[in-house]
Nucleic acid binder design. Structure first.
Lengths: 212, 212
DNA sequence: TTGTCTATTGGTCGCACATCCAATAGCGTG
DNA sequence: CACGCTATTGGATGTGCGACCAATAGACAA
């Protein structure tokens, strides 16, 4: 079975890794927990269990727990952004359309939960608040860049790409806020709110951002 | 000073109230905590301290803590709705304008925090989730009613008052989501997003919903 | 092979929480 | 005034958490 730990749950055969590798392992696992179960589930004991390691080791790498939570959020959010709206080249219109389409998928619910989680927890955790603010900047800039490209290419039309990006993100946040309470999805007039907003603010014809 | 408790913090002079009065007192205090500090601060000990009572008494009225949290949220949210968008008669346009104006005030930040808090916590607390869903319904219906009135009076123009109400609420949720991370307010193009959306969806001229 | 460095262990400590319960003391009734 | 009902106390129990630290044992160099 496993190649690293004790083969028959008896001898705790200690495994020694480089600080960088161990630290990365801890953060990666914490990010997974954050996305799947919530930031408050990132606990010294919990992470230690999943890595088959003692809790003290986690607090050795992250002496104060809040820092691990903040780091985990940052890594998870960055990874999701890179998947939803990659920083590669390509036609702005199809990139934006793809992004908006993905935000309607079930997979995006976890992302909505993560942001909701982080935004609320920011109220009590300064380190996390700082990371959330930074990530907001990343998402905003990534989207603004796509819009600006489109404007320069002549396919989008807006006076202020940044303001337009923020508007779209606000709508997405509003839709995502209901992720924990909605039983069946919103009526399509509401579910399509982000697309509708984008098309209107970018001077596109209705349906232009819908993937066929 | 106080007329109820021990005068010089020495004798715990026991005070006996009717179950209804005590229960109401507990809920009211919990609602205040929810609004000012967050739902996770509603704790048996915390509420008991504020009421100069023993923790066991709180858990006597609310054997399971989650139920108190849910109740507190419901009461707080209802009270805020009644203040922001009273169920009285009046011109739909001025009522809506007043509501939207209030959502931009600093006072509304606490309401945003409360909803953000409740929406996230709903993920883990079924009883709270149920209350949040119910409150969503209340807010939606209250706003829909105003819009419908306006449509019948000929001052608003929309095909689906409910869908329009939900759109406005989604935008408000999106704006409120940033309450814990924004340092300075959004640029006005963003801060006015709710007003802009309402004016557009209700067939009003820009500025029609802005209070002079 | 031996020695050294340090990643990792295996605990401990204190705190805050929900939950439960027998004993107590207000307060209205007789 | 005495009595009984019950609101309220005071304490106990168990859980999970972050933080802290001396002792241990991998792994690499000499």
């Amino acid at each position: 079975m496993s190649s690293r730990v004790a083969n028959s749950d008896s001898q705790p055969k200690r495994v020694r890794k480089s600080p960088e590798a161990r630290r990365a392992e801890i953060v990666a696992n914490s990010a997974a927990i954050a996305l799947a179960e919530g930031l408050e589930c990132i606990t010294m004991r919990r992470v230690a269990d999943e890595l088959a390691v003692r809790p003290g080791l986690i607090s050795h790498y992250f002496p104060v727990a809040e820092d691990l939570v903040a780091e985990a959020f940052g890594v998870a959010a960055t990874a999701e952004l890179d998947e939803l709206l990659p920083d590669t080249t390509g036609q702005p219109l199809v990139r934006l359309a793809r992004f908006l389409a993905l935000t309607k998928g079930a997979r995006y619910d976890d992302v909505s939960r993560l942001w909701l989680n982080a935004r609320h927890l920011s109220r009590f955790r300064p380190a996390l608040r700082e990371r959330v603010a930074r990530q907001e900047g990343c998402w905003r800039e990534r989207l603004t860049a796509v819009i600006r490209e489109g404007v320069e290419a002549g396919v989008f039309r807006t006076e202020d790409p940044l303001a337009t990006a923020v508007q779209i993100l606000v709508v997405l946040d509003g839709l995502g806020a209901h992720v924990n309470t909605r039983r069946d999805g919103h009526p399509s007039a509401v579910a399509d709110l982000a697309v509708t907003t984008a098309e209107r603010e970018l001077g596109l014809t209705p349906g232009a951002l819908t993937i066929p």
